[in-house]
């Protein structure tokens, strides 16, 4: 078990072990450190590798199960590396009133995937989101951290094509 985790840790990215130590040192003393630390890890890697749990747990005097419990509770945290881009489609009422269901179906069809999946070329991970606060300009979607309103099927398709062609956002 320990060996597998170490292997995983090594495969995350070069210099990751040192970076993780640095993030833990930076966050471990602040009150309620776990969420800020998890955010910092995900900002760095785009996900939170399970191999990081033991070190986080030890630094914050938690059990590995508690760390796992927190990561799995929140929709925002990802335990697997997403595609180069993350496309979030709003499923909430205001966007439903403006045809978001058709957008969802169209995105799934364009990418040949369902929610929480990544397209085969690793370009786009599709996620539902429940409100982006853009309800006066529904339907809304978010590509990485860029928000779009009054989105038509054609707009969505253009966004997806663009994402397939481009590298990950910095």
């Amino acid at each position: 078990m320990q060996d597998t985790l170490i292997d995983q840790a090594l495969s995350v990215q070069a210099g990751w072990t040192e970076k993780l130590d640095q993030l833990i040192a930076q966050y471990k003393s602040i009150p309620g450190a776990l969420l800020p630390l998890l955010h910092a890890i995900q900002d760095e890697l785009t996900y939170i590798p399970e191999s990081a749990y033991p070190k986080i747990a030890q630094a914050l005097s938690l059990s590995v199960a508690e760390v796992h419990g927190v990561v799995s509770f929140y929709h925002h945290f990802k335990t697997h590396k997403p595609g180069r881009h993350v496309l979030q489609i709003c499923r909430a009422e205001s966007c439903q009133a403006m045809g978001s269901e058709a957008l969802e179906a169209h995105a799934k069809q364009c990418l040949s995937i369902d929610y929480h999946e990544t397209s085969q070329d690793q370009a786009v991970t599709l996620e539902p989101v429940y409100c982006l606060g853009n309800c006066a300009l529904s339907p809304a979607v978010m590509m990485d951290e860029e928000i779009f309103g009054r989105v038509s099927k054609a707009d969505l398709e253009a966004l997806i094509q663009d994402a397939i062609k481009t590298e990950a956002h910095a």
């Binding site: 009150p31 309620g32 450190a33 776990l34 969420l35 800020p36 998890l38 955010h39 914050l60 419990g69 927190v70 509770f73 929140y74 929709h75 925002h76 945290f77 989101v129 429940y130």
Partner: peptide
Amino acid sequence: RRAAGAYVCGEETSLLESLEGKRG
């Protein structure tokens, strides 16, 4: 402090748990 996409954390006690670094 950034939340992490849990609607229930808009409930004040769940929010406080989350701020403390726990499940909401």
